[in-house]
C-alpha cells in the first residue's frame, strides 16, 4: 500500500491543504492584529487627558481634544437605547414565546434581513423620515437611525437567550397559577437577563462606531450638546472628517479617537466573552 505512488501524492495534498487552512487563519488573525495593533500603538501616542477633557482648537494650534464628540456619541447611543431597547425586548419576547407560527417565521426573516440592510440606507431613510419633516439635522434623528440598526440585532439576541431558559421554569410558574405574561416577564426574562445584557452591550459597542447613518442625520458639529433638535457631534464622524483632511494634527486626532473606539469595542467584547464563558461552566 505504501508503495503506491498516488498514496504519497494524497499525503502531500493532505498536509498542503491543512497547511493552507492554517495559513488562511493566520492571515485573518494577522489582519486583525495589524489593524488593532497599529491603531492602538499609533493612537495611544496622541491620546491623553486633554483629548478627553478639551474641545477642539482652531487649526494650527496644537492640542485640543474631542470632549464634545465623546459626549455626543454617548448621547446618541443613549437615545438609541431609549428608542430601540424596549421595542427590541418586546419583539424578542414575541419571537421566543409566541413566534412558533407563520407570523413568527416571517418576523424572524424580516429581522435578519433588516440587520443586513446597509447602514447608509438606514441613514437616508431616517433623513427622509425625520430630518426632512423637522427641517434640520438633529441628535434625535441620529438616535433613531442607530436605534433602527440595533433593533433587529437585540431582538434576535433576546429571542435566542429567552429560548435558552428551560421550559420547566415556565411550567413551574404556570403550575403555580401565575399568568403567562407574568411568567414571561418575571421568570423567563430575568432568567435570560445576563445573556440579553451582554448581547445588548455588544450591539451598543458596534453602533457607537457607526458613521454612515449619522452623516445624514446627526450631521456632526464641533460644539457640545445643544438640544435634541440640533445637530450633534459624534466620534466616528469626526474620525472620517479628520482622516480625509490634509492636516497632520487632524490625522493624529483621528488616530486618538480611533484608539478610544477600538478600546471600547475590545474591552466590551473581552468582558462579554469572559462573562459568557464563565456562565457556561
Amino acid at each position: 500500500m505504501n508503495n503506491r505512488p498516488s498514496y504519497l501524492r494524497r499525503k502531500i495534498t493532505n498536509y498542503t491543504m491543512m497547511g493552507l487552512c492554517g495559513l488562511a487563519t493566520v492571515i485573518a488573525i494577522g489582519v486583525l492584529l495589524l489593524v488593532v495593533g497599529y491603531t492602538l500603538a499609533n493612537g495611544i501616542s496622541f491620546f491623553n487627558l486633554e483629548f478627553v477633557t478639551q474641545t477642539a482648537r482652531p487649526l494650527g494650534e496644537p492640542g485640543g481634544g474631542m470632549r464634545n464628540e465623546i459626549l455626543g456619541t454617548m448621547v446618541l447611543v443613549g437615545l438609541a437605547t431609549l428608542f430601540g431597547l424596549p421595542v427590541s425586548l418586546l419583539a424578542g419576547a414575541y419571537l421566543s414565546e409566541f413566534g412558533g407560527g407563520r407570523v413568527g417565521t416571517a418576523v424572524r426573516l424580516v429581522a435578519d434581513v433588516l440587520a443586513g440592510v446597509p447602514s447608509v440606507v438606514i441613514g437616508i431613510f431616517v433623513y427622509v423620515l425625520v430630518v426632512v419633516p423637522m427641517g434640520t439635522f438633529s441628535a434625535l434623528s441620529g438616535g433613531i437611525a442607530l436605534a433602527i440598526i440595533m433593533l433587529p440585532v437585540i431582538a434576535r439576541t433576546t429571542e435566542e437567550m429567552m429560548k435558552l431558559v428551560p421550559t420547566t421554569h415556565r411550567e413551574a410558574a404556570l403550575a403555580l397559577g401565575i399568568r403567562r405574561w407574568r411568567t414571561i416577564v418575571s421568570v423567563v426574562m430575568p432568567g435570560a437577563l445576563v445573556g440579553i445584557v451582554t448581547g445588548s452591550m455588544l450591539a451598543l459597542a458596534r453602533i457607537a462606531g457607526e458613521t454612515a447613518p449619522l452623516i445624514f442625520t446627526a450631521l456632526g458639529n464641533r460644539f457640545g450638546f445643544s438640544g435634541l433638535n440640533q445637530p450633534i457631534a459624534a466620534l466616528p464622524i469626526q474620525i472620517w472628517r479628520y482622516a480625509v483632511s490634509p492636516y497632520n494634527t487632524w490625522h493624529e486626532q483621528a488616530w486618538a479617537a480611533s484608539f478610544l473606539l477600538v478600546m471600547l469595542v475590545l474591552i466590551i467584547s473581552v468582558l462579554v466573552r469572559w462573562f459568557t464563558s464563565r456562565l457556561n461552566h
Partner: peptide
Amino acid sequence: FLVEMLAAIPSVVLGLWGLFV
C-alpha cells in the same frame, strides 16, 4: 473569538487604517 473581533472593528477605523497603512 479573534476572527469574530474582525467584524467588531468600526468601519471608519478600518477605513482610517486602510487609508494610511
